[in-house]
């Protein structure tokens, strides 16, 4: 049986579920803490016990991304691949790829200074949604309802002035029901989907912010749009966020790399960790 390794930096319920399922499926399974693993240009695959396939599950995006680069340097099969993690971890790259591959996605505007971002805002009008290009759980995602709000946010960006603060990602505010859809794509299929309804009238729908998972039927239309989005970023094990635009129908606004699924696992018909392990193993030992 192929050996499965799960790379982590913090063990969440998802990592425990994956470990339990891999063991249950009969795989020699080990957890590897990225924080205490050293890799060098002089290393070879045989210096480590990375098994036949690695699931990279770090909660820190940059740690996971760079660890993945090391694994690929060592010729260790890893999910997701570096290219996919890189594409999904950066919302700007994701938006560009979705549009390039004709996946329906919200109109998104990129500016590289607060002055230019203000120009975009004046041209497109409010509301727009500003998002940090790297980050999760809805943090820093702000609905710019008016010019005053935008000015304040842009000013704060100038004060904090981190390298990524100079990249302004402004997205149209989609007219939709107060919910979105999170679908989990594993390889060439969607294995589960749920509605996430925003709490207390807010516009964010992240489970991390308290949104309640409700099962969502995986229609052919939903599966098609998710598969197009998956292919656009390079495929693998992905969390695809979809909104229901009043006029355009499904639009994909994000694709997530190390997808969290404890909320969805409560309502899904299929066993999500089982699907993930089987896909990773089958893809790696082809």
């Amino acid at each position: 049986m192929p050996k499965v390794r799960i790379v982590f930096d913090r063990v969440r319920l998802e990592e425990k579920m994956l470990e339990e399922k891999a063991i249950e499926l009969g795989h020699d399974t080990k957890m590897i803490d990225a924080k205490i693993t050293n890799v060098s240009t002089e290393n070879k695959k045989s210096d480590f016990d990375f098994g036949d396939v690695v699931l990279e599950r770090c909660v820190s995006y940059f740690r996971g991304l760079h660890f993945t680069a090391c694994l690929e340097f060592l010729d260790v099969p890893v999910f997701n691949r570096f290219e996919v993690a890189n594409n999904c971890g950066n919302k700007m790259l994701t938006s560009l790829l979705l549009k390039k591959h004709n996946v329906p996605t919200p109109k998104t505007y990129f500016s590289f200074s607060s002055e230019s971002a203000t120009e975009t805002l004046d041209k497109q009008g409010c509301p727009l949604v500003i998002k940090p290009i790297i980050g999760s759980w809805g943090r820093g995602v702000i609905l710019l309802k008016d010019r005053e709000t935008a000015d304040a946010i842009f000013e704060v960006r100038e004060l904090t002035d981190g390298p990524l603060d100079r990249i302004f990602y402004l997205q149209e505010a989609i007219k939709r029901p107060p919910r979105d859809i999170r679908a989990i794509a594993v390889g060439d299929q969607v294995v589960a989907a749920m509605y996430r309804t925003s709490t207390a009238g807010g516009f964010k729908t992240n489970i991390a912010l308290g949104a309640e998972p409700v099962p969502c039927e995986i229609t052919k239309e939903l599966e098609d749009v998710c598969m197009k989005a998956s292919k656009a970023v390079g495929g693998g094990i992905l969390g695809i966020d979809v909104m229901e635009d009043e006029k355009r129908g499904f639009v994909v606004h994000e694709v997530n790399n190390t997808v969290e699924f404890k909320g969805l696992a409560k309502v899904a018909k299929r066993n999500i960790p089982k699907e993930m392990i089987e896909y990773a193993v089958n893809s790696a030992v082809k």
Binding site: R63, G89, I134, S136, A208, N256, T258
Partner: peptide
């Protein structure tokens, strides 16, 4: 501590 790049 929870990092700026934490999440999925």
């Amino acid at each position: 501590k929870v990092g700026e790049d934490w999440g999925e």
